[in-house]
Design a protein around this nucleic acid. Structure first.
Lengths: 186, 186
DNA sequence: AGAATCATGTAGCGAGTGCTACATACGCTT
DNA sequence: AAGCGTATGTAGCACTCGCTACATGATTCT
């Protein structure tokens, strides 16, 4: 008779990638146990068995996503430095508006919203992602930049403002602002 | 005998302020009909009677909040112009981080997140609020500014980036960036 | 072999969700 | 007075939510 296929026991580590995929596709707010379980090929019962609580699951998931984001940044990171601050901005905006980053951006704003509501686990994840991005930015600053650390923070602020304005359909406004600030080629 | 107090019939206009109060206090994501109704002194039944659908209620509510935000801006708007761009930023950051604006900021990021998820009614409200803020900024630009329109957009981008970084607990990073950009007094 | 632990399935609970059906007051027009 | 449209109360439906109780294979330890 046909033996039942013996699958290796699932674990947090094996579940998190699939959970992350579902959350990236469908959003954090609508993530409830049963759909998450279905996406991971299990039951809500098992998710709670492994993570203990939905809250803990989300916290673990956000931490995982932060690491995944860091990995994505590493992969997209060009090794050679830019020559001007405008070039740095152009690179990161191009990367941030790439189609494959879109789900990540959609998730990002939900994380920010969660931070302001004080939901546990959101702020550490958000800070980790921002630290990663800031680190990348510092590495990308032109070699002759007079103030790489401060400049990276300045650019980060502009970039995040641009992203937000883009998210609400005010992208043009941000680009005009960058232009007026001398950070885009006319 | 005691006559029953005859209250005037409720309407969208009389309900929206109370609904807005509840949403500002408790967030948009957790806003379900029964708590909303309780906050407005009615029943879920009546909310649906007046708004037709929860989705329509939220859309109306966001439009109302956009108008309320415009009113708050008008009220907080100093009539005299600033003298430098740094002064403009300082003013708006001071106003944006005031305690009474905090619930509004928390709501704001939920709205942004809703925009990226394409939920109907969010984007128009967000754009209306941003238009309002941009208009205020333009009016605040120094009289001798070489490019008030572009400058206002530049400052808006920086301000929103600063707000976002502040929301996730990276406020210092943004301030260092503004400093490096010459937009804060050293 | 027997016992204990791990991993998983089935079933359900109590609460909350948006929404609806039905009944019924009230005020207005005729 | 009769009828009618507006406004409101009560009750409920079908569903989803996070979570739990209970049972049972599978694995590992003694």
């Amino acid at each position: 008779m046909a033996r039942v296929k013996k699958q290796p026991p699932m674990s947090k580590d094996s579940l998190l990638p699939m959970l992350a995929g579902h959350v990236l596709a469908h959003g954090l707010g609508q993530a409830s146990l049963r759909p998450l379980a279905k996406a991971a090929g299990t039951s809500d019962r098992m998710l709670l068995y492994h993570f203990g609580t939905k809250e803990a699951l989300i916290a673990d998931l956000l931490a995982f996503l932060a690491k995944a984001y860091a990995g994505a940044l590493d992969a997209a990171m060009g090794s050679e430095r830019a020559h001007t601050r405008a070039e740095v901005i152009a690179r990161i905006l191009a990367q941030g508006s790439a189609p494959q980053m879109q789900p990540f951006m959609a998730l990002w704003w939900e994380i920010v919203a969660g931070c302001t509501r004080g939901i546990s686990g959101y702020q550490p994840a958000a800070q980790a992602m921002m630290d990663e991005l800031l680190g990348w930015l510092e590495g990308q600053m032109p070699a002759d930049d007079p103030d790489p650390a401060g400049g990276a923070r300045y650019l980060l602020t502009l970039i995040e403002g641009t992203m937000m304005l883009g998210a609400i359909g005010h992208g043009d406004t941000a680009l005009q602002g960058l232009l007026a600030g001398g950070l885009l080629p006319a």
